[in-house]
Design a binder for these strands. Sequence first.
DNA 1: ATTTAGCAGTCGTAAGTATGGAGTGCTAAT
DNA 2: ATTAGCACTCCATACTTACGACTGCTAAAT
Lengths: 352, 352
Amino acid sequence: MGISARKEKILRAVVDSYIVSCEPISSAEIRERFLPDLSSATIRNELSALEDMGYLEQPHTSAGRVPTADAYRLYVDKLMPKKKLTRNELKTIRRYFDHKMTEIDEILHQTARVISEITNLTGVALIPDVTDAKLESVKIVKLTDSLVLIVLVTDGGILKDTTAEIAGNPDEGYLRTAGNFLSAAYQGHSLGEIAASESLIRAIKKEYEQLFKTIIKVIKKHAGGGYAGNIVLEGGAKLLTQPEYANTQKARAMLEALEAKEQLIPALTGAGARDIDINIRIGRDNEMGEGMPECAIVTANYRINGINIGNAGVIGPIRMDYSKVVSVLDYIGKTIQELPDGERPPDTDRDE
Amino acid sequence: MGISARKEKILRAVVDSYIVSCEPISSAEIRERFLPDLSSATIRNELSALEDMGYLEQPHTSAGRVPTADAYRLYVDKLMPKKKLTRNELKTIRRYFDHKMTEIDEILHQTARVISEITNLTGVALIPDVTDAKLESVKIVKLTDSLVLIVLVTDGGILKDTTAEIAGNPDEGYLRTAGNFLSAAYQGHSLGEIAASESLIRAIKKEYEQLFKTIIKVIKKHAGGGYAGNIVLEGGAKLLTQPEYANTQKARAMLEALEAKEQLIPALTGAGARDIDINIRIGRDNEMGEGMPECAIVTANYRINGINIGNAGVIGPIRMDYSKVVSVLDYIGKTIQELPDGERPPDTDRDE
DNA sequence: ATTTAGCAGTCGTAAGTATGGAGTGCTAAT
DNA sequence: ATTAGCACTCCATACTTACGACTGCTAAAT
C-alpha cells in the first residue's frame, strides 16, 4: 500500500532538502522552495501524517521535519531523481582511469579513490574472494638460496603471490618442474577445493612434498582467510566534513568502525548484494552489524567482459546524496567496462 | 647556557603532568604532586622566569602553565625519564612479531600497527626507497598469453613485482633467457642507475628490446617515483582519542594531512633523520612542512643484521608521551633484530 | 639574598534568567 | 479538502551574576 502522490512530493522535498543542508525543514520552507501551490497549513497536515507513518521525525516540538531511515529507503527505491554528473565530475572520473591497469587491486583502489573524491564520502572497495577462483597455474620462482616466490594464477587473471622460505636450496629447474607438476595436478580446481581437500596429497610425488605443503599453506592463506585485508578504504577523513560527524564522539565511532575492516565484511557482502548491480543499504545502529554505527553503504558490483572484478562504493552517513552516488557508481561502471580496449564510455564528451 | 637544576625539575613536572592530563598546571599543584619542599610562591617565581625564557605559556592570566614546543624539545633532550613498558605492553609487542615474516612491507606494517596500538597514536612507517638498492636478478614469469610478471630482486632481499602486458605471446623459455640476460647485464647496478642510464641499451640484443623497454618502465616506476605509496599509516582514528583533536576542525586538518601521504615525506625524511636511531621532531604550524598542522613525529630507523629495513614511528600531537614512545620504538627494534633467527630479545621475561 | 605568607586583582567557567523567533497544532472559516 | 489565523512550545542566544582558580606583588621571615 503506497502513499499519495502529494505525500511523495512532500517527502521527496524533505529528503532533497535535508540531503544538502542537514537541517530540519519547515512547512513554510517546503512551500516556498518546492510546492508554492499549496499552503503551509496543508503541507503541515501532510507532514503530520507522514510522521505518523514513520517517514518523518521532529528533533523537538518547534522544529521542522527530518527524514527517517524509512524515508531514505522509500526515496532511493521510488522518489529519487536521476542526477546528472557535471562535466568536471565526468572528467575527474575519466582522468582516474585513463591509463592501462592490469591488476584488479589497482582498479579497485582507483575506484575507491575517485568515488571518495567526487562524493566527499569514504570510498570503499571489496576485492573479490578467490576461494572460488579456478587455479590456472602455479609458478615458483627462485629469488635467493632460501627464498622463493610463489605465484598463483587463476582464471579471470586474478593473481596472488607470496614469498616463502624454503629449505635445501633447490635449483631453478627443479622448482619449475615442480610448478608445472602442481599446475597440472590442480588446474581447474578452485583454491577453496585445493585448500580443503587432503586427498589430492596422495597424487603428489614424494619429492615435491615439502614444497607442496608450503604451497598449500599459501593457498590457504588466500582462500580460507575470509576477506580481511581485501577491503580497501580511501578518504576516511572526508567523513569529518559531514556535519553528522561534527561531534567527535560519533566521528570516532565511525572511523574506528572503518579501521576494523573485518567488521565491514557483513555490511558489504550481506544478503541482496549478490545479484544486483547497485546495492543500497541504509542502517540504523546495529542494523549494519555488530559495532557498526548508524550509516549507509552504497555499493556496485563491477564486471569487465562479464567477469566479476569486485564491489566498490561509498560508506557515509544515512543522509547522503544517493542520487549522485548512484550516478557516480554507474558512470564508473561504464568507464571500467571500456578500460581494457582503451575505448571511451559512450556518453563521453571531451572538453578541455 | 643551561637552566638551574630546580628550574629543570619544575619544567619536567609541568611536562610530565601535561602529557597525561592535557590541562594547565598551577603552582600549587606542582608543589603538591612534585615538589612538596618548596612553597607555591617560590614555584610561581620560577614559573614566571621559565615563561620569560620561552618554555612555558599561560592560556590566560588566571590559568596554570602549559609547556611550549621548546619545553618539549628540552624535555626529550635532557629531562625525560626512562619509562619502562608494562608486561602487557611487552607481551603485545612480542605477539605482533611472533611469526616469521620475510617481507619488509609486512614487518613495517606490523610495526606501525603495534606502535599505534600501544601508544594510542597513529603509527607510521616508511618503506625504504629502492633507488639505491642493487639489482640481483630479474625474473620474468609468463602468466597468460599476453601477461607477464616481472620480478626484481635486489640486495637486502627487497623485492618488487609488477604485472605487465606484452605482445607476441613469447614462450616461457624465451622469457627465462631474457630474464637471465637482463640479470647478467644489470647485476650489481642500482635501480636508480638502470632507470637513468640510456647507454646500457646498446648492450641489449635486438630481440629483447621490447621486453627491455617494458622492464625499464617497471624499474622507473619503482626507482624514480619517490616515496609515494611507500608510507604506511595505521590507526589514524586513534588520534581522535587525543583531547587536542576534540575540536573537529583540528582533527580534520590532521587526518587530511595524513591522507595526503606525500606531504609526510619531508617530515619523515628531513635532515637529521638519517644517521641516528631515534629521531624526534616537534613542530609548530608549518615547521613540519607545507600544509602540515602542528604535530610531533617520532621515528626510529630499523635494521636487521645491519641492513636498513625502513623507518617507523608515531605521529601525534606535540603533547605526547615521548618517553613511552621511545621505549616502544626501542623495544620493537630489539624484537625485530631477533626476528629472522626466531630468538627473543634479551630482556624478555615470559609470563602467561 | 632567598623564600614565603598573605592578599588583591584578573579572568574564565557555570549557572541562572530573559528574550526573540521559528515552527507547530488546532480551530474555524472558506 | 484547504487555508488563514493564532496560541503554544521550545530552542537558541545573549546577558548577568557569582564563584573560584591562579597569578603577581608586597612585605615579612629566614
